[in-house]
Amino acid sequence: MPREAEPSLNERQFVLQALQENLRLDSREADRYRPLEVTFGDEYGVAKVSLGKTRVLAKASAEVTVPYADRPLDGVFQIATELSPMASPSFEVNRPTETEVLLSRLLEKTVRRSGALDTESLCLVAGQKCWSVRVDVHVLSHDGNVIDASCFAVVAALRHFRKPDTSIEGGILTVYTPAEREPVPLGWLHSPFCVTWSYFGEEGEMALLDATRAEEQVRVGSCTISLNRHGEICQIAKLGGTPVEAVILLQCTAIALTKVKEFSAYLDKKLAEDIKRRDAGGRSAELTAENDR
């Protein structure tokens, strides 16, 4: 298996020394993200996120299945993250690396366990039929901070997604095709976003947001904080690494909250633009009523 190219001593020194002088290689400030951009596909539920040179594609899809026996009233919701050799040749197909496991756990905790998607609304017939929603995350290019980009892509894809409309009459479930009835959005409760801090220095005293690959390779620790714009923490993960002062972690959380509010506003704006673009025909009346609820 080809190995990931590790930074040489000189590169390592260069990045670190620049950081000591409060300089980043791309001359960003410490708490500044690279330009974040999200685009939606022609289909519903496809979101492409680019964060600098990092690029992530998320696609949401839904089908009708049988609910789990122990949760007859809930739908099925899963997030699939498989890193392909496209992101880096060191990722192998069908063999999860540590990065992949941690990424999928983080997304799971941030989006699924925090109850962002109302899984009860996915239930069609209790114990027999439910929607199974799945989000596939594809990392196309890995230039650092895949976690934040993936989380944003997942949330964007799910909020953009429309599942086919259904009706139950006399115990018979009908799933309408998009041609028959306009698909409906998912029951969405809140939008969590991840903000990842990277720590540098002997005691982890320097904290940077949105590290690039080069910075990620020389960092001594990281902490991913997931929040929504209401100021609720969905998860925090500082999984080891060099210990960092508790006070710094609290400051990081406060800054993360302002970033999450920015993300939230940006995504709302983009989704509104997309609805407007699709509604050129003027079928907007019923759709907007749906969305305001």
């Binding site: 392909s84 496209m86 799945r134």
Partner: peptide, 19 residues
């Protein structure tokens, strides 16, 4: 060679099994 399919032509008249 990794080929990532991003979108396929949709068919509005069929609900496909996506998984």
């Amino acid at each position: 060679i990794v080929l990532q399919i991003e979108s396929t032509p949709g068919n509005d008249y069929v609900n496909t099994k996506l998984f």
